[in-house]
Simulated assay, not measured.
Amino acid sequence: MEFLKNKSGISKQNKMIAIGFGLLSLVFIILMASSKSFFDWTFLRHQNVLSWWLRPLSLIPFCYFAYKRNPMGISVTIFLLLTSMAWFPVPSEVNEQVKGFLNVEKDYLTSTWTLGKILVSSMVPLTMGFLCAALWKRNLKWGIFVLVVIAFAKILWSITEAGNDGASILVPAIGGLVICIAVVYYGFKRAEKRKAQ
């Protein structure tokens, strides 16, 4: 049974599911912060570079649901993006650069949270918010600009913090960015063409 829609055109059911997955995302973050065994279990699986490719590509459905103004889809995508680091099995062999970079990430997440670190880390939700707002407003140029900022901010942070090991994310980050921009651009233009007909 479909729930009544409010003035925004978003159903109550859509909002409730969005809130539910938002809470699930919060539970995942709390588990990562409070349980060392869960944290280590997750990072062992994050050594599988398939998760490194999946994370930037998950921005495609995020952009789609932002364009469609669908909070449920956005919330579900964020939950899947967060948990995707644990989807794949531990690889039998791990590149030394991958190990080195993930060790830097683990140290960063588990060391003392200073004001500067909080401000730097807040860029992740802020840029995701800007991306969502740009596509919610159907502004393709700003959407693509924010995608580029997200990718290069991640690359800059990785190389600054992890040096040569940080370079291990270059191929997934740039490859994922190119694929995202191509799909978002094509999808946006196709949707706008349909609306004009």
Rank of each mutant, 00 (worst) to 15 (best):
G129A: 07
S11E: 07
K106L: 06
F62Q: 00
V49T: 03
L44Y: 11
E105S: 13
M123R: 11
P56D: 05
A151P: 06
F28W: 14
E192N: 12
L23D: 14
M85K: 14
Y64K: 01
L131S: 07
F39V: 10
N48K: 08
M32K: 12
L31K: 13
I144F: 02
A182S: 12
L59M: 12
G187S: 00
F79L: 06
W53M: 00
L44W: 13
L119K: 02
V27A: 13
N70L: 05
K193V: 11
N70H: 03
M123H: 09
K189L: 14
W136C: 01
V124A: 05
S75L: 00
F88Q: 02
A134W: 06
L50R: 10
R194P: 06
T114D: 04
M32G: 04
G176P: 07
T110N: 04
V149H: 09
I78G: 00
A18T: 04
W52C: 07
V171M: 11
R138E: 07
N48L: 03
V120T: 11
G20V: 12
R69D: 08
S122Q: 09
F101L: 03
T110A: 08
T83C: 08
L81R: 10
K12R: 15
L109F: 02
K137Y: 13
P125W: 10
P125F: 04
A196C: 05
S92T: 15
S111L: 05
L23N: 12
G129L: 07
V148S: 01
A162L: 05
P71I: 02
I29F: 14
M128N: 15
P71R: 04
S34R: 05
T110Q: 04
N164C: 09
K154L: 12
L26Y: 06
M16S: 05
G9P: 02
D165I: 01
Q47H: 13
S37Y: 07
M1V: 04
Y67C: 06
T127C: 15
S37K: 14
S111M: 09
A151Q: 10
G143D: 01
I10G: 00
L54N: 08
K36P: 11
E161N: 12
I169W: 00
E2F: 14
W136S: 05
I60S: 01
L115V: 14
G22Y: 11
Q97A: 10
K36F: 12
G100I: 03
F152K: 00
L57I: 06
D40G: 00
N164F: 11
S11V: 01
F21A: 08
V146N: 06
I17M: 11
F43E: 05
V149W: 04
L26C: 13
K68Y: 10
V183E: 10
W113Y: 15
I144P: 03
G20E: 09
G73N: 05
N164K: 14
G116D: 05
L140C: 12
A182N: 10
G73I: 03
P91R: 02
T160M: 10
E161I: 13
F38K: 02
N6D: 15
L156H: 06
S75M: 04
N95Y: 04
G176S: 05
K154W: 14
L126D: 01
W52S: 03
G129K: 03
N164L: 14
K68Q: 13
M16Y: 10
F65K: 04
S158H: 02
W87T: 13
L59D: 08
L26N: 11
P91D: 03
A196F: 06
G187M: 00
L4D: 14
R138Q: 12
S75G: 00
S158F: 09
Q97M: 11
Y186K: 15
V49P: 03
